[in-house]
Design a protein around this nucleic acid. Structure first.
Lengths: 191, 191
DNA sequence: ATTAATGGAATGAACGTTCATTCTTTTTAT
DNA sequence: ATAAAAAGAATGAACGTTCATTCCATTAAT
């Protein structure tokens, strides 16, 4: 009965510890402690630490995707859709700092590189809304003629950087500022 | 006479291993091996691993700064100076992938956060050319009226992201593309 | 009563660091 | 100029610690 219950506790504890202290500041024993389970119990739900880390990543990715798709309408203009996505990402990151910090840790680690390589070389699935958006922007000639990967960097590089600064307390993002930042990103993208 | 020799070998080995495998994929024993010295020898030159990591960072920071200042003239327009700096950073990163990867590892670690907090809260030294540039851009009203930290993110977030993609082989940056990318960043910054 | 789940002690591998020893260079004595 | 002695640098095996993982006695569920 306690099955998904315990699993959830473990995942939550892992998220918190890893987000705050990094992968190496989050030993399994500590995760177990925080989750209120025995160390061995974790291994009933996750084969090993790597699996735990990856499954947690998938969960966060899914949550983020859900938020992004909420209110997203493919009928709107490329610009409007970009603003929707950018704003949603930024808002999500700053209101879920643990999620954001975890995703960052993941991306800046060997896990992340592997994941990214798989994603880029793989086919576009229907979850791949950025790619679709940029491709449409290119064919409509509303955004600069640059490789997709570069467009991605132009669009989201600043957002991630600014989200980190917000979470670390180097700047305080309010709604007004967020809007201005997304607009600036669009200026970088648009033709 | 062999004094700086060994030290150099250790630093070089550390750079290579940490850049490629991260801090935790570069045990002291492995660094010693690659440097061609005994494990204990490292401790004659560096008090401990933390000190080694930090001293290496300072060295790389210094090298990068030298490159940035080369050909930089404070008389030129804000735009021209930005393009100079952006181009120099990007070129440096892609032609010194080990340095870039190391700096990234450092910034995305507790070391980096501490370092950044010190830097932001501290006074601007004369090495702080970005700050000066942006401040001048603000007062001349040629760049957007946003907090310094945000301007920094808008300007360098994309560059770092794109440099990583280049080094990981997701995109291939040639001179033409670099110019276009810096121009796009400027579009994001300019008023 | 049998099976599955749990907790946490036990395990062994990996790590950073230390230190007794060896090797090399420099200094002193002849 | 040569040899002996001292100082300094280098070494890597050994140590203590930390960690992921396993094992098994205990507990809960059926």
């Amino acid at each position: 009965m306690a099955k998904p219950d315990k699993r959830d506790e473990i995942v939550r504890a892992a998220l918190e510890l890893i987000a705050e202290n990094g992968f190496h500041g989050a030993p399994m024993a500590m995760i177990a402690d925080k989750a209120g389970v025995g160390a061995g119990t974790i291994y009933r739900y996750f084969e090993n630490k790597d699996v735990l880390i990856n499954e947690l990543y998938r969960e966060l990715e899914q949550r983020l995707l859900t938020v992004l798709m909420d209110g997203y309408s493919p009928e709107k203009s490329v610009r409007e859709r970009f603003i929707h996505l950018g704003t949603a990402v930024l808002r999500y990151c700053i209101s879920n700092p643990l999620d954001f910090r975890y995703l960052e840790q993941f991306h800046n680690s060997p896990y992340g590189v592997v994941h990214r390589r798989d994603k880029i070389s793989g086919e576009a699935d229907d979850k791949d809304i950025y790619r679709k958006l940029f491709e449409e922007g290119l064919s409509r000639q509303v955004i600069k003629d640059l490789p997709l990967v570069v467009l991605f960097s132009l669009a989201f590089g600043p957002l991630i950087s600014v989200a980190r600064d917000h979470i670390l307390g180097f700047v305080s993002l309010d709604d007004d500022l967020i809007v201005k930042i997304i607009a600036a990103c669009w200026d970088g993208l648009k033709r």
